[in-house]
Nucleic acid binder design. Structure first.
Lengths: 242, 242
DNA sequence: AATTATTTGTCCGTATGTATG
DNA sequence: CCATACATACGGACAAATAAT
């Protein structure tokens, strides 16, 4: 790991152990002093690491009891950290299914919201980004980057910080997850195709014409195509999926 | 505030100041030593508080620079803390609108997912909880509690920890927000009515018959009724809404 | 390009608080 | 009520990084 704080490093280490189940809910961690010596850091650093994990609701501390792992239902699932750790520990197909389910549930509705709340300037920016997507397909520019920014420009149009944050986390988690499960296709973009562009265009048009339910359906179709593609690719790697 | 850790208390204080905008993004906090003296705690405690805020992505620290407030788009919006602080600081109508928008977008899809993934035992539990809701309307038991558990039993049927966590946070935030903006109706449940029960029944039936799209529409109708009700109540308090 | 000042990062020793038995 | 075991809190010291000089 690229070195940051010692406390941040340690928090990630322990966090991973918790999410992986190596430290199970209800279990008490070794006391701070032992934890410190095991990692070769001071008690101060350990305490700071535990504070971070407490903010992520992975653990809670009590005097005389110690620090214990909280039940999974309490965890701060919607944080970059927990999402990442969850995709890292054991190439977790089940978790990928959950991520995909949530995405299929949320993004179409989010795009519909964008169609409802978009201002003129938002629409201008969306069109610009779509043109860049077209260019990428012709080989001018990176598809993955253009794709990300296209979707982002739509989400900005929803004018809803909560929704924006949610969808970004979701997309980042899925990208991270894919890089993890299929490290070989890092720089290929199998999604780049004429059909894919058509699906993107449909979404763009629906939002720009401020038609929420059409936007919803277009986005759903786009997602189904993408997840179907990923599905097939992961299947080829040997493991059945759903 | 009910006393917990000093560091937790301090984290909440500073967190509120940040979310309220009193400490703006880009701004650097007073250095740790000053912060400590101002609150009458040791530097250790202050550092632990800042670590928690760092885990919530509200701040980041750099040597020689200090600790500075991160841009709003980086914040960990989907955490109990940030959600609570956001509803606390200035009875924030705009934030309530955002919460409602997200709820209308997510919950119907979440219920549809439940209809797709429900097992027999889930359905049994859902029916039980619906009966308790009926009883509550007849005066036997607390409507608010029964309502919460009814919806929870449905979300459990989705068998998706991410979705469960998300919807719970959302519902808790909205409840908290309502208690804040209309403290007077704390224990009245204006939602309890024959019509409301009928809407709940429709959701229950759709899920139990495993009909996702019917479940989606039923839940949407239910939410529209509730938010319409809240809408009218808050309007009566004087301020226009959307 | 080297030096200094400033602020976080890290360590340690010790004392207090709190729940268990 | 006492002893135990853990987190909690304090204060002082030095290390490390980096902006400013």
């Amino acid at each position: 790991m690229r070195q940051k704080n010692l406390s941040t490093q340690l928090a990630h280490e322990i966090g991973r152990r918790i999410v992986s189940g190596q430290l199970a809910p209800g279990e008490v961690l070794p006391k701070a002093e032992v934890l410190s010596q095991a990692s070769g850091v001071s008690r101060t650093v350990t305490r700071e690491a535990l504070k971070a994990l407490e903010a992520l609701r992975l653990v809670e501390s009590h005097q005389k009891i110690g620090t214990l792992v909280r039940p999974r239902s309490d965890w701060q699932w919607w944080s970059q950290e927990v999402l990442r750790w969850s995709t890292e520990v054991t190439p977790n197909r089940a978790f990928l299914v959950q991520l995909t389910e949530v995405r299929m549930a949320i993004e179409p509705a989010a795009v519909a919201l964008a169609a409802r709340n978009a201002l003129d300037e938002d629409i201008l920016r969306i069109v610009e980004n779509f043109l860049r997507l077209e260019a990428a397909l012709r080989g001018e520019g990176d598809w993955a980057k253009a794709d990300y920014e296209f979707h982002d420009s739509i989400m900005l149009a929803a004018h809803n910080e909560l929704m924006l944050s949610l969808v970004r986390m979701l997309r980042d988690a899925l990208l991270y997850s894919r890089r993890h499960t299929m490290p070989l296709m890092q720089h290929t973009s199998p999604e780049a195709s004429v059909e894919s562009l058509a699906l993107h265009r449909a979404v763009m048009e629906a939002v720009c014409q401020r038609q929420p339910s059409r936007a919803y359906r277009s986005m759903f179709r786009l997602l189904r195509a993408v997840s179907g593609l990923v599905h097939r690719l992961t299947e080829e790697e040997g493991t059945a999926w759903a």
